[in-house]
Amino acid sequence: MARRKKVYEGKAKILYEGPEPGTLVQYFKDDATAYNAQKKDVIDGKGVLNNRLSEFFMVGLNAIGVPTHFIKRLNMREQLIRAVEIIPLEIIVRNVAAGSLSTRLGIEEGTPLPRPIIEFCYKDDKLGDPLVAEEHIIAFGWASQQDLDDIVALALRVNDFLSGCMLAVGIKLVDFKIEVGRVWDGDYQRLILADEISPDSCRLWDIETGKKLDKDVFRRDLGSLTDAYTEVARRLGVLPSNSAPATKPHLIN
């Protein structure tokens, strides 16, 4: 088998050329990073869990008419996805005060917000993904006002879907991050959800106990990240309820 050409490698995923024009293969790594990669580790099975969980959410979003880059899962660690032109923004949707919002504004973590708050960060690891305003985004040409309106509408639909999924299994969706990409049909542009949706990109708390079931387990040294992600997958029915944590999985080609 010919070696696939690597297109891009990030902190948690690798993109390879896909089998057909306009497609890519997205590979989920076991690497865990926090604080802009200042804290790093390799967590056995993390990539397998994120692949399955992201598939679950992307399939559900596609089913309700929210367009995503997801085509199909190929194996335990890989997905076939549409190639998109990524808008250089991280879109953060917050339902409860936590993380950097609490730090920046002095709001006690866990305080419910009166409505979802959407924030934008400029995607640049060297700059630490700084928070930016809509005026910056439009002035520097990263997205138009129409793009921003469409992104906000898409982000709120994703928030409704994810909140419902999580509430049904006793999990509070505190906040999450998404990325959006452009696809072109001739001269016509569409914006679609890209990257991933997983406990790497969401804050998830058990409704009854407040136990963290997301990457804060790694950030704050609260226990086993694999156990936390496995718990989310079990509750959502992605894994059998009696399955063991996905440690040291065997890759299926």
Rank of each mutant, 00 (worst) to 15 (best):
K5L: 15
K5T: 13
Y16T: 03
E20I: 01
Q38T: 10
K39N: 14
K40D: 12
K40L: 12
I43C: 13
G45P: 03
G45L: 09
K46P: 09
L49V: 02
L53P: 07
S54K: 01
A63K: 05
R73N: 11
R77T: 09
R82H: 08
I87D: 15
L89P: 06
I92T: 04
S102N: 02
T103W: 01
L105S: 02
L105T: 03
E109N: 07
I118Y: 05
F120W: 02
C121Q: 09
C121M: 14
Y122M: 11
Y122N: 04
Y122E: 14
D124V: 01
G128I: 08
P130L: 12
A133T: 07
I137F: 08
L148V: 03
D150C: 02
I151P: 10
A155P: 01
R157F: 05
V158Y: 02
L162R: 02
V169M: 13
G170C: 11
G170P: 09
K172T: 13
D175A: 11
F176W: 01
F176D: 10
K177S: 13
I178W: 06
G181Q: 08
R182M: 14
V183A: 12
W184R: 04
D185R: 02
G186Y: 02
D187E: 15
C202N: 06
L204M: 11
K212E: 14
K212Q: 13
F218T: 02
R219W: 05
G223A: 10
G223E: 11
G223S: 08
L225D: 04
A228T: 01
R235H: 11
L236S: 07
G237T: 03
V238T: 06
N242F: 12
S243N: 08
A246Q: 12
K248I: 08
H250E: 15
L251T: 03
